[in-house]
Design a protein around this nucleic acid. Structure first.
Length: 614
RNA sequence: GGUUCCGUAGCUCAGCUGGAUAGAGCAGCUGACUUCUAAUCAGCAGGCCACAGGUUCGAAUCCUGUCGGAAUCACCA
C-alpha cells in the first residue's frame, strides 16, 4: 500500500472512531503539498466540516495530531485554513528510494491474465506514411506498452487497406508511365514510388477532365444539369465523381482493373502483389526507423468479405433486418443512433461488414478480452456504431471495446491537404529531425570520442525523441498544431531535455565506479530537493497505471518532463561527486541512479530511447 | 440543421474524479559555466481560464445557454 493510500485509510478510520463519521477512504482528497508550504502531502478537510459541525482548522488540527501519533512515518503537520499539511520522516523517504532502486519492475504491474489487442497505423497502400500516421503510430505503440506494463498480454496489430479503387489508380498509372521500373531501379522507397504514381494518376485524370469540359458533350451536360445560376466551375467540381464513373477513359481503366482484381485475374493480381510488396518494404523501413513493430497484420484483401456470416446470423437473431431491395440494416435508435447499413443490396460488404468480421476473426485468432482501435476522431460515429452492433450480437469482448480517438494534426499554415502538396511525409520528417540532432550535437562536441556508428545511433535517438515527445505530450483527443520548426527544438519542454537529465546521470555514474556500494545509512538530513525527487519517483507506478487505464500517454510524458526538470535543478544546486560528505555522495549517486531508471522506463513506455551520451 | 469534440499567457501545451495566489516551454529581457555534460539553472515580464447565468463553504474544472472552431450525420473507407 502506498503512503497516500495509507493516509487515506487512516483519515477514514480516525473520522469513524473519533467522530463516528463514515467517510470512505477512496473519497479522502489528498494532494501533493504545494511547494510554498511545508509538507509532503496535504489532506483537504473542507469536505468533513458539514458532518462534523466544526471549523475546518480545528478538524485539521485534531486529525493531524492523531495521524502523527498513530503513524511513525509522519513526523509533523501544520494547518492552513482547511488544509492539513503532513511531513514524512526522512527515513521513510530513504526507504522509498531503496524500494525504487531494488524493484526490477518498478512501475509495472504483475500479469493480470488478460489479453488486449491494439490496432494502430492501418495505412492505405497507395501512398507513403505521413505526419498523421506518426501521431497514430506513437499513440498506438505507447498505449500498447502501457497496457503491457499494466499487466496485459498485448497483441499489436493493424489492418492494411490494400485493395479498392485507390490502389487500382496507382496500378493503372504505373502501367502507363512506370516503364516497369522497380524501386531499386528508380532509386526510391517502394511506398514513395507507388505514391508518385497515385499522384500522377490524379494529375492525368484532372488534365483529361479539363480537356473534356471544353467538348460539346460536356457543355450540354452542364446546361442540362446545372442548378439555377450555378457557374461552370462549381458544377464541374461537383460533377467530378460522375465524370470519373461514366465518361473518363482513365476512370474506366481503373474500374476495369478493380473488376479484374475482384475476379482474381492472374496478371492483375501479380502486378498488385508486386506493387504492394514494394509498399510493404517501404512501410517496414519507416516502422523500423520509428522503432515500432507489429505482432499480426491483417489485410483488407483477406478480411473484406468476412462479416457476411455474422450478418446472416444476426438476421436470424433479429438483430438486423432486410429491406425489399435485399440490403441489410441495423436499427440503433434504441441506443441513440440512426439506422445503419451493414450489407449492400447486391450482397457486397461495406466498411461496417468488414469491421464486424475483422473483430470476430481477431477474437478467434487471439481470444482477447479487450480491443483498442487507434483511429482518428473523424470516425467517432463509425466506432460508436460498430461497438453497439457487436454488443447487440453479444460478442464476448463487446463490453471491452475502446476507440482511442485522436484529433487531426494541423500545420501552422492550416490543414494538411494532399491535393495542395502540404502533407508532411513521415520519412522526410524523421530524416529532418535526425539531421537537426546531428548539427546540434556536432556544434557541442561532447561525443567526438565515440565511433561514427555509435554517434549515428545517438543522433537518431535524440532526433526521434524530439519528434516523438513533441507529439506524444499533447492529450490525444485534442487537435494539435505541428510546427516543424518547433518539433526539432531540443531545449525546454522536449524529449532531448529529458534525455539530457539521463545523460548527465550516466556521466556521473561512469566517473564514480563502484562507490555506490558504500552505505549511506548515516546520511539523515535529506535536502528538500532530494525529498522532492523521491516523492515524485514514488508516484511513478500510479502515473503508469492511470495512463494505461485512460489510454492517455500524454500524462506520462508530462510526468517524465516534470521529473527531469526536478533533476536538472538538483544537479545545479547540489554537488554529487564533490558532495560535502562521503555519505551524501553515496546517497546522491543512488538517488541519481534511480532517477535514471525511472526516466528510462517512463520514456520507454512512450517509445522513446535514451542515449548514454549526447 | 441534429450529434460529438475543442476554446487557458503573443505562440505551443499542462492543469479538468470541484480545493490554497491558474502552471510549463517557446519567443522577449536580466543574470549564472577555472568546478560532476550550459541540450542546464535562476530571475523579470506576460491571464476577465471564449462569454453569460446556475450549483456550493469553494468553479478553469460540474450544469444550462450563447458565441467561435472542428468532425460527423453515404449502398465511401
Amino acid at each position: 500500500m502506498s503512503a497516500i493510500d495509507e493516509i487515506k485509510a487512516a483519515v477514514s478510520t480516525v473520522l469513524k472512531e473519533k467522530y463516528d463519521y463514515d467517510h470512505p477512504a477512496e473519497e479522502v482528497l489528498i494532494n501533493e503539498t504545494r511547494s510554498e508550504f511545508e509538507g509532503d502531502y496535504t489532506v483537504v478537510v473542507f469536505p468533513f466540516t458539514k458532518a462534523l459541525k466544526m471549523p475546518p482548522p480545528k478538524i485539521a488540527d485534531e486529525l493531524g495530531q492523531e495521524l502523527v501519533r498513530s503513524h511513525d512515518f509522519i513526523s509533523s503537520f501544520n494547518v492552513i485554513k482547511g488544509f492539513l499539511n503532513l511531513t514524512f520522516e526522512k527515513r521513510f523517504w530513504k526507504g522509498e528510494l531503496q524500494k525504487i532502486l531494488t524493484d526490477k519492475d518498478f512501475g509495472r504491474t504483475s500479469k493480470n491474465g488478460k489479453k488486449v489487442l491494439v490496432e494502430f497505423s492501418s495505412p492505405n497502400t497507395n501512398k507513403p506514411l505521413h505526419l498523421g500516421h506518426i501521431r497514430n503510430i506513437l499513440l498506438g505503440w505507447s498505449s500498447a506498452q502501457l497496457l503491457e506494463a499494466a499487466g496485459y498480454d498485448v497483441v499489436k496489430t493493424q489492418i492494411v487497406n490494400d485493395r479498392g479503387i485507390a490502389i487500382c489508380k496507382s496500378m493503372v498509372s504505373y502501367q502507363y508511365f512506370g516503364d516497369g521500373k522497380s524501386p531499386e531501379e528508380a532509386d526510391k522507397k517502394g511506398d514513395h514510388l507507388i505514391g508518385e504514381y497515385y499522384v500522377r494518376f490524379e494529375k492525368e485524370f484532372r488534365k483529361e477532365y479539363k480537356t473534356w469540359q471544353d467538348t460539346a458533350a460536356a457543355k450540354k451536360i452542364y446546361e442540362d444539369h446545372r442548378k439555377v445560376g450555378e457557374k461552370e466551375e462549381y458544377f464541374f467540381s461537383r460533377y467530378k465523381n460522375t465524370y470519373f464513373n461514366e465518361y473518363s477513359v482513365l476512370g474506366k481503366h481503373a474500374k476495369d482493373m478493380l473488376l479484374k482484381w475482384e475476379s482474381a485475374d492472374e496478371e492483375v493480381i501479380a502486378l498488385w502483389q508486386k506493387m504492394n510488396g514494394w509498399v510493404y518494404d517501404g512501410f517496414n523501413e519507416t516502422y523500423e526507423n520509428l522503432g515500432v513493430h507489429f505482432d499480426h497484420i491483417y489485410y483488407e484483401s483477406d478480411t473484406y468479405k468476412l462479416g457476411k456470416v455474422l450478418i446472416a446470423e444476426g438476421l436470424k437473431k433479429g438483430v438486423f433486418y432486410k429491406e425489399d431491395d435485399g440490403s441489410v440494416w441495423v436499427d440503433l435508435e434504441d441506443v441513440g443512433m440512426d439506422r445503419k447499413l451493414v450489407l449492400r443490396s447486391d450482397g457486397t460488404s461495406v466498411y461496417m461488414t468488414q469491421d464486424l468480421g475483422t473483430a470476430q476473426i481477431r477474437n478467434k485468432d487471439h481470444e482477447v478480452n479487450r480491443m483498442v482501435y487507434v483511429v482518428g476522431d473523424e470516425q467517432d460515429y463509425h466506432f460508436k456504431a460498430l461497438f453497439a452492433i457487436l454488443k447487440k450480437l453479444e460478442e464476448p469482448y463487446a463490453d471491452e471495446l475502446f476507440h482511442l480517438s485522436y484529433g487531426m494534426v494541423d500545420l501552422p499554415t492550416g490543414k494538411m491537404k494532399s491535393r495542395e502538396g502540404t502533407v508532411v511525409d513521415a520519412d522526410d520528417l524523421i530524416a529532418d529531425v535526425i539531421k537537426e540532432a546531428r548539427e546540434s550535437s556536432e556544434s557541442r562536441g561532447e561525443i567526438e570520442g565515440v565511433t561514427a556508428e555509435e554517434r549515428n545511433e545517438i543522433f537518431r535517438k535524440i532526433g526521434l525523441a524530439a519528434l516523438k515527445f513533441f507529439i506524444i505530450k499533447v492529450s490525444p483527443k485534442k487537435r494539435m498544431i505541428f510546427d516543424p520548426k518547433e518539433s526539432v527544438d531540443m531545449q525546454g519542454q522536449t524529449g532531448p531535455y529529458i534525455q539530457n537529465a539521463y545523460v548527465r546521470i550516466q556521466s556521473v555514474l561512469r566517473k564514480s565506479d563502484g562507490i555506490e556500494h558504500v552505505s549511506d545509512a548515516e546520511y539523515k538530513e535529506l535536502e528538500d530537493l532530494e525529498v522532492d525527487l523521491i516523492r515524485t519517483m514514488s508516484q511513478f507506478p500510479q502515473v503508469v497505471t492511470e495512463a494505461a487505464e485512460q489510454l492517455d500517454p500524454s500524462n506520462l510524458a508530462n510526468y517524465c518532463y516534470a521529473l527531469a526538470k526536478l533533476y536538472h535543478r538538483f544537479w545545479h544546486d547540489l554537488r554529487i561527486l564533490s558532495a560535502e560528505t562521503e555519505v551524501a555522495k553515496v546517497f546522491r549517486l543512488k538517488l541519481s541512479k534511480s532517477v535514471a531508471k525511472v526516466l528510462k522506463s517512463g520514456m520507454h513506455l512512450l517509445g522513446i530511447e535514451m542515449p548514454s551520451r549526447m
